[in-house]
Simulated assay, not measured.
Amino acid sequence: MNRPRRSVVKPPISEVLKHYYSIDVKQRAGWSKILCPLHVEENPSASVSTEKQRWNCFVCQVSEDSLDVIMREEGIGFREAQDWAHERFGGSRQDVPPAVQGEPGRGVHQGSRPGRRGGQVRPGVRRFGADWT
């Protein structure tokens, strides 16, 4: 028996990026360039969309929404990330569906895939502005 899907209430990507990485994202149409919070760089290789509520890095091959960021940074699952986001950022929990077993995640890719650079992005790789020396 298939349950009807309900929408998931997520915190705005701009608030999550500000919370974890001190990145200020301006509300605007389209994609904005930002420095990737997962690796050191001088020129922006990442972008964020407040319309689509996602960010991605072309170097790391990472594409995440706000709940993906919370799950990675806090080291928690989907349902726990929803609860954490609700406590931190507020919002309604009425439209949040129960966890669905067997559905793959969409966040950080673990391991290499054909046609992509090898290597992994680990949770908590670095905080924005971390010293690498």
Results as ranks from 00 to 15, higher is better:
Met1Cys: 07
Asn2Phe: 14
Arg3Thr: 04
Arg5Phe: 08
Arg6Glu: 01
Ser7Tyr: 13
Val9Ile: 13
Pro11Val: 06
Pro12Arg: 15
Ile13Cys: 03
Ile13Glu: 00
Ser14Glu: 10
Glu15Ile: 04
Val16Ala: 00
Val16Trp: 08
Lys18Ile: 01
Lys18Trp: 09
Lys18Ala: 09
Tyr21Glu: 01
Tyr21Leu: 04
Ser22Lys: 15
Val25Gly: 00
Lys26Thr: 03
Lys26Leu: 05
Arg28Thr: 02
Ala29Tyr: 10
Trp31Glu: 02
Trp31Cys: 04
Lys33His: 09
Leu35Lys: 14
Cys36Trp: 07
Pro37Met: 12
Pro37Tyr: 14
Leu38Arg: 06
His39Met: 03
Glu42Ser: 10
Glu42Val: 04
Asn43Gln: 14
Asn43Ile: 00
Pro44Ile: 00
Ser45Glu: 06
Ser45Phe: 08
Ser45Ile: 02
Ala46Cys: 02
Ala46Ser: 08
Ser47Asn: 08
Val48Arg: 06
Ser49Val: 04
Thr50Arg: 11
Cys57Val: 01
Phe58Lys: 10
Val59Ser: 11
Val59Asn: 12
Cys60Leu: 06
Gln61Asn: 14
Gln61Ile: 05
Gln61Tyr: 13
Ser63Arg: 15
Ser63Ile: 05
Ser63Pro: 02
Glu64Asp: 07
Glu64Gln: 15
Asp65Asn: 15
Asp65Ile: 05
Ser66Ala: 15
Leu67Ser: 03
Leu67Asn: 01
Asp68Asn: 14
Val69Lys: 04
Met71Arg: 09
Arg72Val: 03
Ile76Ala: 06
Arg79Pro: 02
Trp84Gln: 05
Ala85Phe: 04
Ala85Pro: 02
Ala85Gln: 00
Arg88Ala: 02
Ser92Arg: 14
Ser92Met: 07
Pro98Phe: 14
Pro98Ser: 15
Ala99Lys: 13
Ala99Tyr: 13
Val100His: 08
Pro104Cys: 07
Pro104Leu: 15
Gly105Val: 07
Gly105Asp: 09
Arg106Gln: 13
Gly107Arg: 09
Val108Cys: 01
His109Ile: 01
Gly111Thr: 00
Ser112Glu: 10
Arg113Ile: 03
Arg113Leu: 11
Arg113Tyr: 13
Arg116Cys: 13
Arg117Tyr: 12
Gln120Phe: 13
Gly124Ala: 10
Arg126Ile: 03
Arg126Lys: 08
Arg126Gln: 09
Arg127Ile: 03
Arg127Leu: 08
Arg127Pro: 00
Gly129Asp: 11
Gly129Ser: 09
Ala130His: 10
Asp131Cys: 06
Trp132Asn: 05
Trp132Arg: 11
